[in-house]
Amino acid sequence: MNQISNAIATRDNGPAAMVEQYRADLELVMPSHLQARVGAWIRNTQGLLRRDPKLMEAAQNDVGQFIAVLMDAGRLGLEPGTEQYYLIPRWNKKKRCTEVTGVRGYQGEIELMYRAGAVSSVIVEAVYTNDQFQFRPGRDERPLHDIDWDAEDRGELRLVYAYAVMKDGATSKVVVLNKGHIAKARAKSDSANGKYPERSPWNTDEEAMWLKTGAHRLTKWVPTSAEYMREQLRSKAVVDGELRPEPLPVTIPAPAPGTVDDDYDEDPIEGELVED
């Protein structure tokens, strides 16, 4: 009888059960489009744990850290365990065990820009050594990127660029990053340089992380959903020409230090390379 009781207690205190217990808190920080399907979001997260023993072990080692990562994904309105938001076991030297960290993917970065409602399209592309790329800041509005789609090998990753077309047709600042910029971003990633680098998207999907870095830098110049929501609240202060008390601004808490593997944030550069 004691064994059964202990098993139930262990199950109820495990990461999967804790996700359900925090349903109300997760729903509170989620944007409206996720609140309607919070149940599916939670079930998908629980399924990730069941399918990945290493992730389950890392979540069990520090359930609080795991929940903090999920709260970060939830407040951003992103799906954990996808290319929007990776969940990765990371070695914690102080605790001497693995814990779960979150890594935003390039699809997540792009999703946040689209959701803000200020852009009509977001372009994030990788340039390989056999591609033709041209961009002259101050003269070209957008990069010219030619790809030989019949080529069996486009060569090695060389650049990544990102820009957005705004709803009014204007082009945002164009961000272009080279290998040096990508190397600096990767060097600051705990997941890429930890005890389990084979689990890091930097090693499992390098191109995706180049794209993510470019998209992340572009967010400096393009509104994100958090900014947009605050602006929407301000606009609602005036209804039918009547000035009403402005509601308190929405405060979306930042993740705790070390919760997410997204520390790199250097100033973006405009493209400087011109090829004929």
Rank of each mutant, 00 (worst) to 15 (best):
L26N: 13
V238Q: 03
A256C: 01
K184I: 08
A40H: 13
G117Y: 07
I182G: 11
I4V: 07
K93Q: 14
G194A: 04
V122Y: 11
A16G: 05
L233Y: 03
D52S: 12
E109Y: 02
R217P: 01
E141W: 04
T251C: 04
D150L: 09
V274R: 05
T171A: 06
S121M: 00
P245F: 00
N193C: 08
R51N: 05
G258H: 08
L49C: 02
D205R: 15
Q107W: 04
P247T: 09
G117D: 07
A162N: 03
D140W: 13
S225Q: 14
M56L: 15
V19C: 06
D131Y: 05
D131N: 14
N44T: 02
L87N: 01
D146T: 04
N13D: 15
T224V: 14
Q132A: 10
I182C: 11
A192E: 10
M229E: 14
Q134M: 11
P249N: 10
R96P: 02
K167S: 10
D205H: 15
M56G: 00
R23E: 15
I8W: 11
Y22A: 02
R136P: 01
V103D: 10
G77R: 07
A116T: 00
D25C: 06
E27L: 12
K188L: 07
V175L: 06
G81H: 02
P255N: 07
E275N: 07
D168C: 10
M30A: 14
N203D: 09
G241M: 07
R158T: 06
A162M: 01
N130R: 15
V19M: 05
T251D: 12
Y228G: 08
I67A: 06
E246G: 03
D240Q: 03
W91C: 03
V38W: 09
Q60D: 02
R217E: 06
V222T: 07
V124H: 03
L211P: 07
V29I: 04
V38C: 15
P223W: 05
I123V: 11
Q232A: 14
I67E: 06
V165F: 05
L70A: 05
V238R: 01
M30S: 08
E27G: 12
R104A: 03
D205G: 08
K236M: 11
Y106L: 04
I8F: 14
G77P: 09
F66A: 00
E79P: 01
T45V: 02
M56C: 02
E57Q: 12
E207W: 06
K173F: 13
P15W: 03
D62I: 05
V29D: 01
E206Q: 12
N61P: 05
M56P: 00
K179N: 13
Q132N: 13
D262T: 04
S5Q: 15
P253M: 04
D168S: 10
E152N: 08
T251G: 05
W41I: 08
E242K: 12
A185Q: 02
P15T: 04
L233D: 08
E125M: 10
E246D: 04
D62E: 08
L157S: 12
Q46A: 07
F66M: 03
P249K: 09
P89V: 01
R43W: 01
W149E: 07
E83M: 01
G180H: 14
R96M: 13
G241Y: 04
A9H: 11
